[in-house]
């Protein structure tokens, strides 16, 4: 299958004020086909937000190393010039952030926020702009388009603001949408609405999507493939129904098991039971370490885990996990 996005050996490191270097991404590689939805699962510090931003080469000032290849529609974005990048950002690839109240301009009405993007990417003509803006907002707001397009961000609810951000993201008909925790700041009820919007859009516009989250349950029935990040490394990747139902890496397994169970008939008797917490703490990424990053917390650790770092070993059903348990297979 012709690949839309091909990421190879992406490495990003930050330096702090005292000169210490911490590695946020340590050699991340994956591919994405046209129209495919990739769910990226990771906790804070796993490098998931760095990954979202670095695909478009949006780095904070304190980035010290950024190497790798990001091939998008055949072009290497890590070699592209600023002008070329500007034409891609927001047009071919768009990015949706977690906090809609920060991402929107506070003194612009919703329709202006959309028009701004269309104008920046070369659309002109008052009537064309107005019609296209209405059409885009109509795609995410089935009702009340008129009122919402005249509203300022502070007049909208959290869910409505997130819809405006989604409208901005789809405005130029991108072939890839990167969404970084787009529902983390929302209530469960609103979260469900926004997920529905994403599902509908998937059918309508057919763009590929990278959906970054810390909640595996959001990916069920939505993502085609799931990639699990831990300490800046891909530790498990595979078809969503395989990774979400029979995770193989000890970290993924422990993460899924640490969630509180949904109460059922017997559950109340079992309430006193403890949750299966993952012991210990994630290591600071500035700490140099030989061997597997998860080894200190791993329930299945072996001698070899301290000596060298595992690579991704292929498993059956198209998935792969970076754990020495699967080395011999």
């Amino acid at each position: 299958m012709a690949s839309l996005l091909e990421v190879r050996d992406l490495r990003v490191a930050y330096h702090s004020r005292d000169g210490a270097v911490s590695e946020a991404l340590a050699g991340v590689s994956f591919g994405l086909g046209a129209g495919e939805i990739l769910g990226i699962l990771g906790e804070s510090g796993s490098g998931k937000s760095t990954l979202a931003a670095s695909l478009l080469r949006l780095f904070p000032a304190n980035v010290s190393i950024a190497t790798g290849t990001v091939l998008f529609e055949g072009r290497d974005l890590f070699q592209a010039g600023q002008d070329e990048l500007r034409g891609i950002r927001g047009k071919r690839v768009s990015l949706i952030f977690q906090e809609p109240s920060v991402a929107l301009h506070p003194t612009m009405r919703a329709d202006q926020q959309i028009k701004q993007i269309l104008t920046a990417h070369g659309m002109s003509g008052r009537n064309t702009l107005r019609e296209r803006t209405r059409e885009i907002l109509g795609a995410v707001f089935p009702e009340e388009v008129e009122r919402i397009s005249r509203s300022y961000p502070h007049q909208l609810s959290g869910g409505q603001r997130q819809r405006v951000l989604i409208a901005q993201a789809i405005a130029c008909g991108p072939s890839l949408i990167i969404a970084d925790e787009p529902t983390a700041a929302l209530d469960p009820t609103t979260q469900k609405e926004i997920l529905e919007v994403f599902r509908t859009l998937r059918k309508k516009i057919g763009a590929a999507m990278i959906f970054i989250t810390h909640n595996p349950a959001l990916l069920a029935g939505f993502a085609d493939r799931v990639l699990v990040l831990y300490a800046g490394r891909v530790i498990e990747v595979g078809p969503a129904d395989v990774v979400l139902t029979s995770p193989m890496h000890p970290y993924t397994r422990a993460l899924f098991q640490s969630a509180p169970p949904w109460p059922d008939e017997e559950a109340h008797a079992a309430r006193a039971q403890k949750l299966a917490a993952i012991p210990g703490d994630s290591l600071p990424s500035s700490l140099p370490r030989i061997g597997c990053r998860f080894e200190p917390r791993c329930p299945d650790r072996m001698a070899v885990c301290k000596e060298r770092e595992p690579v991704l070993f292929s498993l059956c059903k198209g998935s792969a996990a970076s754990c020495f348990k699967y080395e011999s297979q």
Partner: peptide
């Protein structure tokens, strides 16, 4: 009822997953 039905849920394997 709305709140309960909005919670994204999936049944994770609680026991050890089978070896490949």
């Amino acid at each position: 009822r709305n709140m309960v039905s909005a919670v994204p849920r999936m049944e994770f394997p609680r026991q050890q997953a089978p070896e490949p």
